[in-house]
Nucleic acid binder design. Structure first.
Lengths: 203, 203
DNA sequence: CCTACCGATCGGTAGG
DNA sequence: CCTACCGATCGGTAGG
């Protein structure tokens, strides 16, 4: 009935699977994701899904990388038009905020990274390693932007970039909790901006 | 062979089950917890486990409440000998720090709350409600301690207790990530103390 | 990409 | 608290 699709069609199907997997995993976690549920949602067979990835673990990795690409595009690349340093850092934080609050159609269950980071933080394996690598990468990027701001004299000379990046991440973890678990996006918005303003106040 | 235990024995068995459930759930989450695994670990039958709780959901709730009791005892009650206000708040933060870093035998997979808060933040049901209630309770306690410190003049007059409590939670979420996922407890210790010092600096 | 399977495990129940 | 089950679902495979 539906065999022998072209390479382009197969790639599109793969993308559909990954998108749906991201969506499901944002709610139930990457471990809670099941091939059967995915198959039902997409009107495919389980074997049809699995054929694109081989194993569930490979599917989970693909979902994680897909989510990473979206995060990077929305939060990071969306701020690259700004001048490096404090301006870009603030743009990144604003984009991150919108991402957490507004990307509900892509991640109905909230940021897949935050979910995955906690889900795999006590296990071993390629998924934990992949999540840790992405968290480190993101932290390094934030640190670099703070460093640029310090070098440009936009932040006090004694400022430690790693420390600020660490605290920014903390603010966003609290924001995620406030939005997702406590359902208070408006309160979270005010508190997040206030925390960042204090953290990034000009000298 | 082992029927008709006394009430006291049954309660002890129940406690053993809950302790083990907390331990397993700290690694695999409350959804990843399975009755079969629990039974194997404890040398019991699945029916023997389930008899104490009725359903898996009730078992999950019991594990969550058990973890809550431990958290409260270690972090909150452990600081009640300090004078209310900034001193007690600092003692709470220190106890929280030790709890996250040292309670590895109770929570081999890290703080069960942090895990559960993310795990259920996109779902509905009694578990989500229970987690949200506990997070709110904990936040209220922190807020109250900050308020006392402000009233005593130990923190600047304009300080907003809810804001400080929100940021403290963020610092600890970052700490949990640094310890569990990135495996850097020493770095985390320095950054956490620095963040708290700035947050709770005397006027 | 499908149908038709596989063994394993899931939560839960009956009955003692 | 046990044995002995139940139907459902899990990830995955064979073969086309």
């Amino acid at each position: 009935m539906s065999p022998r699709k072209s390479v382009a069609e197969a790639r599109r199907t793969r993308e559909r699977i990954v998108d749906r997997a991201i969506s499901l995993a944002s709610v139930d976690g990457l471990e809670g994701l099941t091939i059967g549920r995915l198959a039902t949602d997409l009107g495919m067979s389980k074997a049809g899904i699995l054929g694109h990835f081989g194993t569930k673990e490979a599917l989970q990795l693909a979902a994680l990388e897909g989510a990473s690409a979206i995060f990077s595009r929305v939060v990071w690349e969306g701020a690259q038009h700004e001048r490096p340093g404090l301006l870009r850092l603030r743009a990144v934080c604003e984009a991150w905020f919108s991402y957490l609050e507004a990307e509900r159609e892509v991640f109905p269950g909230g940021c897949l990274f935050t979910t995955a980071a906690v889900e795999f933080d006590a296990r071993h394996g390629v998924l934990r390693d992949a999540v840790a690598r992405l968290v480190r990468l993101w932290r390094r990027r934030l640190t670099g932007e703070v460093r640029t701001a310090v070098a440009a004299g936009e932040l006090p000379a004694g400022t430690e970039p790693e420390q600020i990046a660490y605290e920014i991440v903390g603010v966003y973890l609290a924001l995620n909790q406030e939005i997702q678990l406590l359902g208070a996006p408006d309160v979270a918005a005010v508190r997040t901006r206030r925390a960042l303003d204090r953290l990034l106040a000009n000298p």
